[in-house]
Structures are given as C-alpha cells and as structure tokens.
Write a protein that binds this DNA or RNA. Structure first.
Lengths: 237, 237
DNA sequence: AACTTTCGTTAGAGACTGTAACTCACCTTA
DNA sequence: TAAGGTGAGTTACAGTCTCTAACGAAAGTT
C-alpha cells in the first residue's frame, strides 16, 4: 500500500497531538493541576501558545482527550490484572481487578484525581464525547466480570420488592440501559459494591480520608473484604 | 463601656469582611466556582479589585474563610436537627443528623462541593488554620453522638485482633488522638459507617453517581439503612 | 509551476492575581 | 484645635492566562 504525503501529514499530526497530551500529563504530574495551561504546554514543547489551537480547539477539549487516554490506560491495567491470573474464578479476578484499580489510583494520584475527582466541564458530559465513551467502557469491564461471577455462582440478593420504590426504579433503568443479563436485584448488589469501593477511592484521591487515616491501603482492603463477602468471594490464602 | 472610634472601625472592618465572604458565596452559587475571583467580588461590591486585599491577603485566604464559615453553618444545621427531636434515643438523633447533612449537601450543592470535593490549598491544611479547626469541630459532632449511642446501647463490634495490623494501628492512633471514650473496635465501626455515608455524599457532589443513578436520595437512604443496621439503629415507622 | 492546505508565527483583546504608589478621610493625641 | 498617624480606597502596572486574527512559509496536490 502506497503511503501518500497526506498520509504522512496525518501521522505527523497525530504524533503532535499525542505529544501535547503527553506534555499536559507531565505537567499535571510534576507541577499539579493548576500548572496545566495551554501556554505552559506550548512552552514546554518549544511552541508558541496559539500553535496548540491547531490541534485542540480549547482547554476542555484537550483535557477531555487526556482524560479519555487515561481511562484507556486504566482500563488496560485492570484488564491485564484480570487476565494475568486466567484461568481463575471470576471472584478472584474481581479481587485482582479491584486491587489493580487502587494500585493505579495510588501510584497515579494526580491522574486519578483528574479522572474521578475533578469537575467535568459541560462539554465533556455529552454522551458521545470521547470522555464519556471511555468512562463507560471502563465501567463495563467490572460489570462483565460480575456477570461472569453470577453465571458461575450466584451471590445472595435481596428481594427486589424490598427495595424502596425510588431506588428500585433507578436500578431497573440502569439494568435496562446496560442491557445486562444480570437480574435487577443482582445489579443492585453490584452497584452497592461498586459505589462502596469507588467512594473510598474518590475520598482517598481528595485526601478526605486523612482526617482519620494516614495510610488508605488497609482501609481499602477492609472495604474490599466486605464487598467480597457480599458477592460470596473470599480470599484464598 | 465607651465605644471608641477604633472600636467602630473594627466593626466596620468585620462587616466588610463578612460582605466579601457573602459575595464570594453568592457568586459561587449563582455562577459556579470559576466565577469566583477577587476582581468579580470587588466588582459586585462596587469596589476596585485591589481593595479586597486590604481584607484578605490572597484568594486562598479568602476562600479558606468562606469554607470555615460554611462549616459553621453546616455544623449548626446538623446540631439543630439533632436537638429538634430531643429527648430522643441517640440512634434516632444520628439518623436525623445524617439526613440533615445530606439535606444541606443537596440543597447547597455548590457549597458542599467547596467543602468536601475541592482540592484544599496547601495553606489551608495547617492544623491551626481556620478551615481545619472548623472541619474538625464538625466531625466531632458525629463522634459525640456515636459515643452517646454506645453508652446507651453498645452496638456489635468485631474483635480488634481480627483487624489487619495496618488498619488496627491507624484506628488506635485515631482513638488516641480524639481522646474518645469509645473502645477502638467501636471507633473502627464508627469510621466505617462515617466513610460510607461520606463517600456517597462526595460522589453525589461530584456527579460521580450519575453513571447509574439520576436521583441520589434513595441511594443515600439505602446506605443510611445499612449503616444504621451496623449500629443497631433501625427506623421506627 | 501554480494552487491549496496545514502549521507555525506575532499581535492583541480581555480576563485574572497581586504589588506599588498615591489620596483622602477619620481617629488619636499633644 | 492642629498635627500626625492609620486605614481604606484609588489608579497604574507587571505578569499570568485563554483564545482570535492576520499573516508567512512549508508541504502536498494537480
């Protein structure tokens, strides 16, 4: 296949876009979120500020792309942890995935904050935005694994009618939306577990656990153990 | 007691400081966090920008004062809910307090975000900062109430030795630091409950529950019910 | 070789934080 | 009561930011 000049330009362009994202991330990690600016990125790349606008239309646009890329990286890390111990029971895989998630979060604090603990600009909330897509793909990885767990060995679920109507409706809507094979009561348990761990990670990322804990790792482990118990997953020594 | 002119100036000064905080909050609520700037506050007050610096040394300084004031307001709201149904069992009070907390959070979203879901500038992290003081006072209100609950009707606690060493050490340190009468195992349960509800509220404030839920209220209620169960507190119809 | 597209530049508008230098009104004190 | 100090405001400005406009130069296309 012939490589045309246009082709080459396309690749060059994507390389520069990647360098921009990369530089944004480097600044974020090295100097904090307030140091990430179009000017600073350009400066670091030896360009003048306005040049960046050839590649990204605005700051939100740029940061949305950075976030999407990071979601991809995080998803890959979780999937790798999952597959590393294949063949294994879905329960064990879920534990490994959760730990991979926290490990990523705690070794990449600045990035994790950006993903989960920073206000999302209006523009990046549209369902078709790169950011949303990447975020939903990430969620799905966990949902899929819980589906596998349920298929292999169903965990105890509450009676759906025992849930307050307001909650039940939302769980049903989510079940519908995600087209999952899981029964709604199991979806509810999944969401409870998920928000539980998620909440701990978000608090950790925001330093909101510091009022009580200096090292969040065992706190997460304790939460994970409780969540595991709900799903009928227990540690094997 | 004679009112001197200096006295009058002091009061005038504090009045202006209050107006500045007030205006900052109004801008935050009406136009979002990015609209809060020294210039905008000054403009809204009919002053020129630099005038504000007579009253607060920097943006962080100013916002720290706003946050401290909001913590005071939130604490008062929780205390009021607690006292409104006195005499009552500590369990019922805890439920009322938790609901007051969420009610405050959801009717004052922008403010709650500022308190619990925004990065805390370095300067406001010093233990003697106005912000820290106000935050710790707030935490204590809940701890006190759990102490009362424990005194009246102890809830089940795990064996302290069953906790992983890393977690146990931190719980012991916290128990020590807070000089609470609660045994460490009970402190652990308290912290677990607290971070649970807290996590939900922080996620709600950051719109991180939106991936699954449109209305966080029943989600919080469900969390509260679980937490209540742990503390041996159940709803009375 | 001429035309088009893309990538870079500089200039600049309009925000922002914060500093400097100044005026003016008020308070204290001799 | 006049003199001097203090504090609250002002304008001017330095330096940051985002983003637009206008232009030149290089690369690709025909």
């Amino acid at each position: 296949m012939e490589r045309t000049g246009t082709d080459r330009r396309q690749r060059q362009r994507e390389a520069t876009r990647a360098e921009i994202r990369h530089t944004a991330r480097r600044l974020l990690v090295e100097s904090g979120p307030e140091a990430v600016s179009v000017s600073a990125i350009a400066r670091a790349m030896g360009l003048s500020g306005p040049a960046i606008y050839r590649y990204y239309g605005s700051v939100d646009d740029l940061m949305g792309a950075v976030v999407a890329e990071l979601f991809g990286e995080l998803t890959a890390a979780v999937e790798q942890a999952r597959d590393a111990l294949d063949p294994a029971a879905p329960g064990d895989r879920l534990l490994a995935m959760s730990r991979a998630l926290r490990s990523w979060a705690s070794t990449r604090r600045a990035e994790f904050r950006l993903l989960f603990a920073a206000p999302v600009p209006e523009a990046n909330r549209r369902p078709d935005s790169e950011r949303r897509q990447a975020g939903e793909h990430f969620d799905r990885v966990f949902l899929r694994e819980v589906e596998a767990l349920w298929a292999e060995r169903p965990f105890p679920v509450p009676d759906l009618d025992a849930l307050p109507a307001g909650l039940r409706a939302q769980v049903l809507a989510y079940t519908e939306r995600k087209r999952t094979a899981l029964p709604p009561a199991a979806v509810h348990v999944f969401l409870t577990c998920w928000t539980r761990l998620y909440g701990l990670l978000v608090m950790e990322a925001l330093d909101q656990l510091a009022f009580a804990y200096t090292d969040p790792e065992p706190v997460f482990e304790a939460g994970l153990a409780e969540v595991g118990a709900m799903l009928g997953v227990s540690e094997r020594p």
